Lab assay of single mutants.
Amino acid sequence: KTELCRTFSESGRCRYGAKCQFAHG
């Protein structure tokens, strides 16, 4: 995971959680 998850960085939450293909910091 190298690319940051935009949804997580903007809203602080992501519906994919740990399964998200993007990094959550």
Rank of each mutant, 00 (worst) to 15 (best):
Y16Q: 08
R6A: 11
L4A: 13
R13N: 14
E3Y: 12
K19V: 05
Y16D: 13
T7V: 04
S11E: 15
K19M: 09
G12C: 00
S11W: 04
E10I: 08
A23L: 09
F22V: 08
A18T: 04
R15G: 11
K1H: 02
R13I: 11
Q21R: 06
A18P: 08
G25W: 05
H24K: 02
T2Q: 03
A18E: 15
S9N: 11
T2K: 03
E10L: 03
F22T: 03
A23C: 14
E3D: 02
R15C: 09
F8D: 14
K19G: 13
E3R: 04
S9E: 09
S11T: 15
G12R: 01
F22A: 12
Y16P: 07
G25N: 11
S11K: 13
G17I: 01
F8Y: 10
A23Y: 01
F8Q: 15
R13W: 14
R6M: 10
S9I: 11
E10M: 11
R15I: 14
G17E: 10
S9D: 13
G17T: 01
R13S: 15
F8S: 11
K19P: 11
A18Y: 02
T2G: 11
A18W: 11
C14Y: 02
Y16K: 00
G17D: 01
Y16N: 12
K19Q: 13
S11Y: 08
H24Y: 00
C5A: 04
R13M: 15
Y16H: 12
A18Q: 06
H24W: 00
R13A: 15
R15M: 05
G17P: 09
T7K: 12
S9W: 05
T7A: 12
R13V: 13
Y16G: 09
C14G: 05
R13H: 15
C14S: 06
G12M: 03
E3F: 05
G17C: 04
E3Q: 06
C20Y: 07
R15E: 14
F8N: 15
A23K: 12
T2M: 10
F22N: 13
L4N: 08
E3K: 06
E10T: 14
G12D: 00
G25T: 10
R6C: 07
K1D: 09
S9Y: 08
E10Q: 10
Q21P: 13
E10G: 07
A18N: 14
A23T: 09
T7C: 06
Q21M: 07
E3M: 09
G12E: 04
L4Y: 14
Q21F: 05
F8T: 12
K19F: 08
G25R: 10
H24A: 04
T7M: 15
F22K: 15
Q21S: 07
R6H: 05
A18C: 05
T7R: 09
K1A: 07
T7N: 14
K19D: 15
K1I: 11
R13T: 15
A23I: 12
C20N: 00
C20I: 03
H24L: 01
H24F: 00
A18M: 08
G12L: 01
T7F: 12
R15N: 09
K19S: 10
K19L: 04
H24Q: 02
Y16C: 09
F8E: 14
S9H: 03
R13F: 15
E3T: 06
F22Y: 13
C20V: 02
T7D: 12
C5F: 00
T2S: 08
G25P: 11
E10V: 03
T2R: 06
Q21A: 09
Q21G: 05
E10F: 00
C20K: 05
A23V: 08
S11D: 15
R15A: 14
F8M: 13
G12F: 02
G12I: 01
E10S: 13
G17V: 01
G12K: 09
R6W: 03
G17S: 02
T2D: 13
K19C: 04
H24P: 02
E3I: 04
F22C: 11
A18H: 05
A23D: 11
R6S: 07
S11H: 13
F22W: 08
K19I: 01
K1Q: 01
C14P: 07
K1C: 08
L4P: 12
S11P: 03
L4E: 11
Y16W: 12
R6N: 08
Q21C: 04
K1G: 06
C20G: 04
Q21N: 12
C20W: 00
T2I: 14
F22Q: 09
K19E: 14
G12V: 02
L4I: 09
A23P: 09
G25A: 09
K1F: 10
Y16E: 10
T7S: 13
Y16I: 03
S11V: 12
F22H: 08
R13G: 13
A18K: 10
R6T: 12
G12P: 00
G12Y: 02
K19Y: 05
E3P: 05
F8C: 03
Y16S: 09
R13L: 14
H24E: 02
C20T: 05
S11L: 11
A23Q: 15
Q21D: 10
C20L: 01
G17F: 00
G12H: 06
K1T: 09
K1N: 14
S9G: 05
H24M: 01
K19W: 01
K1W: 02
R6K: 13
L4T: 05
F8A: 11
R6Y: 02
R15T: 15
T7G: 12
C20A: 02
G25V: 11
